[in-house]
């Protein structure tokens, strides 16, 4: 069960890519831009928080669908633990974004569509956790929260994916222009940004995995 075993190789990849992200993220040349200055490097850390959250919520939704189709409690366990981890990354995304906003846009919080959209999304997922906590019966809890989880992910797409693109936003790539363009991301930055996204997503996956295994052990100990 070593860290280099064939089952755990991706954890080694995660560690190497994360360390690369921090070192290269601080040292590699970035475009010189007013307002942003060196804070442009936050891109390697703030944006992957959101990508990781969305990835974990997406996989969670897939397990919720699985749970509804076959009633598997194992799928229910995976769905809840993925959301638990995803919420952490979402909170980190909001905190890092808020700090970055203060020093570039001049305020901790602005009424930017993307900010409000992500705040609403976080509340929707917090409600998911509250909903689960309020239901006693296991089967019932699994089914009701699975339906809610699918609904929550659809709202996430609307609030983070669609609405910010329909109006003006302080975020780059919003306001009718989806994604990054050449001005936002030069080749040098891609060299760090893509590995950064992969490594943070893998880290989220690793932590979720630990939570799922812990929950499984707890259940076995109880029975």
């Amino acid at each position: 069960m070593g860290i280099f075993s064939s089952k755990n190789w991706w954890k080694t990849v995660t560690a190497i890519l994360l360390i690369y992200t921090v070192i290269a993220g601080l040292l590699i040349d970035v475009p010189r831009q007013v307002i942003l200055y060196e804070s442009i490097r936050n891109l390697y850390f703030h944006v992957p928080m959101w990508f990781t959250m969305i990835f974990l919520f997406l996989v969670s939704m897939i397990y919720s669908i699985k749970n509804l189709s076959n009633g598997s409690m194992e799928s229910d366990r995976k769905a809840i633990e993925l959301v638990n981890t995803g919420v952490i990354f979402g909170i980190l995304g909001i905190i890092t974004g808020s700090i970055w906003a203060k020093f570039t846009w001049g305020a901790w919080w602005t009424n930017d569509v993307k900010l409000n959209g992500s705040a609403i999304t976080m509340l929707i997922y917090l409600a998911y956790l509250v909903l689960r906590g309020s239901l006693e019966d296991e089967q019932k809890r699994a089914r009701i929260s699975a339906v809610y989880n699918i609904f929550a992910f659809v709202l996430l797409i609307v609030f983070i994916g669609i609405l910010p693109r329909m109006t003006d936003s302080l975020h780059p790539g919003n306001g009718g222009n989806p994604g990054f363009n050449n001005y936002d991301l030069d080749d040098n930055m891609k060299l760090v940004f893509y590995p950064a996204v992969i490594s943070w997503i893998l880290l989220g996956w690793w932590i979720s995995n630990l939570r799922i295994r812990k929950s499984r052990i707890e259940e076995k100990l109880e029975s």
Binding site: M1, I3, K11, I19, V22, I23, L210, R213, K214, R216
Partner: peptide, 28 residues
């Protein structure tokens, strides 16, 4: 200096995750 500090924190967190991972494997 900044690179060293951040790498140290990151390494510490990764090692922490590895120990939790191992402990779970033992329990399993």
């Amino acid at each position: 200096v900044v690179v060293a500090v951040l790498t140290a924190i990151l390494l510490g967190l990764i090692i922490y995750l590895i120990t939790i991972d191992r402990k779970l494997s033992r329990m399993e």
